[in-house]
């Protein structure tokens, strides 16, 4: 069963005043980030989006999360059109975005607090999640007293606290060092394999994509649409050792094969990338 279906999604951004781009010879003050973006995501699957910078992967997440509206086309979440943030989705951002004045525990409570869950229940849920991420000793720490890896664990815990059916993760590990990143991938997959949450995960790392995903969706260079979907035929439950297996390399190669041409294309006009920062 598909939990998320995007149909003919298109997203245009107006450039800042005075900025122009050259789209295949046509000068314009608009930039098309997504065009004809069709994707079906199965309930409970771990879907990873990979694609060159500027191909609109994050924009797609924003639309699914209800934080941005498409220029045309629709996204269905459980057969309902997404128009505003849904209680069924949780969002993990690249920059952690923890509230600096809240402790780890209180950060995790935030989502529940916005939805009016009573304090005792909030604290109970938050403590369970801290334990799940091995952070029980750190519940009273403020974000500045936590390492980057710990901060991102708290951010993921915060997103899981509301028990979302769909977890949107926008390059959540991009700011971490390589080793911490692997550890967090292992933790994420261990925790996710114990749930029936659907995950849409954006990354630039092919290794990360192959390790985590049930399916990897390769997005074209801007304007983004789905180029190819690659089933990752690695067994579950997965652990870190799988990275050194031969099948891993095979899968990795398949993804890179689909992606290569798009990355090259994006390199041609990468100079445009900063123009649509918003």
């Amino acid at each position: 069963m598909d939990i998320i279906v995007s149909k003919d999604l298109k997203k245009k951004f107006k450039l800042k005043h005075g900025q122009r781009v050259n789209n295949n010879g046509v000068i314009s003050n608009e930039i098309v980030v997504l065009d004809g973006f069709d994707l079906k995501i199965k309930k409970g699957e771990f879907l990873v989006l990979v694609g060159p910078s500027g191909s609109g992967k994050s924009v797609f997440l924003d639309i699914v999360g209800g934080l941005s509206t498409p220029t045309s086309g629709v996204v269905y979440l459980d057969d309902k059109i997404v128009e505003a943030p849904s209680a069924k989705t949780g969002y993990v951002f690249q920059q952690y975005a923890l509230f600096p004045w809240r402790t780890a525990l209180s950060n995790i409570e935030f989502g529940l607090e916005s939805r009016g869950v009573p304090p005792e229940e909030r604290v109970k849920t938050a403590r369970e999640l801290l334990a799940l991420f091995g952070l029980s000793d750190f519940e009273d720490r403020f974000p500045y007293q936590l390492s980057g890896g710990m901060q991102q664990r708290v951010a993921i815990a915060r997103a899981l606290a509301t028990k979302p059916e769909v977890l949107l993760m926008d390059e959540p590990f991009a700011a971490l060092d390589a080793q911490t990143r692997e550890i967090l991938q292992n933790e994420l997959i261990r925790i996710w394999e114990g749930t029936d949450t659907t995950v849409i995960f954006v990354t630039h790392s092919i290794d990360e994509a192959v390790f985590l995903a049930d399916r990897v969706a390769v997005v074209t260079a801007r304007p983004g649409k789905i180029k190819d979907i690659i089933e990752i035929d690695l067994p579950r439950p997965r652990d870190g050792d799988i990275r050194s297996r031969c099948e891993f390399a095979t899968n990795r190669h398949k993804v890179w094969d689909a992606l290569k041409a798009e990355v090259n294309k994006a390199q041609q006009d990468w100079k445009l990338a900063p123009a649509f920062a918003s």
């Binding site: 209800g66 934080l67 975005a97 509230f99 004045w101 935030f110 916005s114 939805r115």
Partner: peptide
């Protein structure tokens, strides 16, 4: 006010008043 934090609050469906209370006020201290 940190725009990223506002995004987090919005993703939880926080109202403008909630954003004000939970983000703007602490920021102002």
């Amino acid at each position: 006010i940190d725009a990223d934090l506002v995004q987090v609050a919005r993703s939880y469906g926080a109202t403008r008043w909630q954003i004000f209370r939970t983000i703007a006020l602490p920021t102002s201290v």
